[in-house]
């Protein structure tokens, strides 16, 4: 079997998987997912600077609030505001925009998977078709990122054996996860009290929201 045939079979397997997801989720969910994935990707690539500016503006607003800008002492607040660095810099802009896009895609997937929001369509064939299309779109967007994970692995290990390639990929992803967790933890430890309050409140509301319609019955 030639390498081209193997690639073709691997790609077909990949698309069959996405087609099956499309079959399960239905046509309407897949169309919404397709549209939002594409539109958000294009918008963030073309107009991502708007999101970056908004985030930096929000960061400066937090600085303004923390330095007493809303309760007087305007000069100190404006001084702190002028000296506050941007949250999103040129170095981490690409990573930030990718993270925003990934969050949009994840939320879209979760929302469009909810049968209370998305009604099941009868057209299974169109669901499969759009599932396959979503597979192609995600492959086109994500493959460049995933291939970077394999670049640092020994070339022979990555190319010759499926198990070796998988091991290299998992190891690299594990290293990336550990490094990200460390960064998040160092950020969490220095989070201001208001940040904790907002985080705990939002987390509890997020958990409580789906249960709000459940009337407590008698025991």
């Amino acid at each position: 079997m030639t390498t081209d045939t193997q690639i073709l079979i691997a790609f077909i397997l990949y698309l069959v998987f996405f087609g099956w997801i499309g079959y399960r989720r239905g046509f309407v969910s897949e169309v919404w997912f397709f549209a939002i994935t594409i539109v958000s990707w294009v918008l963030l690539q073309e107009r991502g600077s708007i999101v970056v500016r908004l985030t930096n503006f929000a960061g400066k607003f937090v600085v303004l609030v923390r330095s007493g800008g809303l309760t007087g002492e305007g000069e100190d607040a404006f001084q702190a505001l002028a000296e506050a660095p941007n949250v999103i810099t040129d170095e981490n802009q690409a990573g930030f925009l990718f993270l925003v896009w990934a969050l949009v895609v994840l939320i879209t997937f979760l929302v469009t998977s909810d049968p209370r929001i998305m009604k099941r369509s009868k057209s299974k064939a169109w669901g499969v078709a759009f599932g396959v299309l979503n597979g192609i779109v995600l492959a086109a967007i994500l493959l460049p990122y995933l291939s970077r994970a394999l670049q640092t692995a020994p070339e022979i290990q990555a190319q010759n054996a499926a198990l070796g390639g998988l091991f290299a990929l998992v190891s690299r992803l594990w290293e990336l996860s550990a490094a990200t967790l460390q960064t998040v933890w160092s950020w969490v430890v220095t989070m201001p009290p208001t940040g904790w309050l907002v985080f705990i409140t939002l987390l509890l509301l997020l958990i409580a929201w789906p249960m709000r319609s459940g009337v407590v019955g008698k025991k």
Binding site: I207, A208, P210, M211, R212, S213, G214, V215, V216, G217, K219
Partner: peptide
């Protein structure tokens, strides 16, 4: 005993 439940609807 009888507890102060938030909701009867389990996630």
């Amino acid at each position: 005993g009888v507890t102060f439940d938030f909701s009867a609807k389990r996630i």
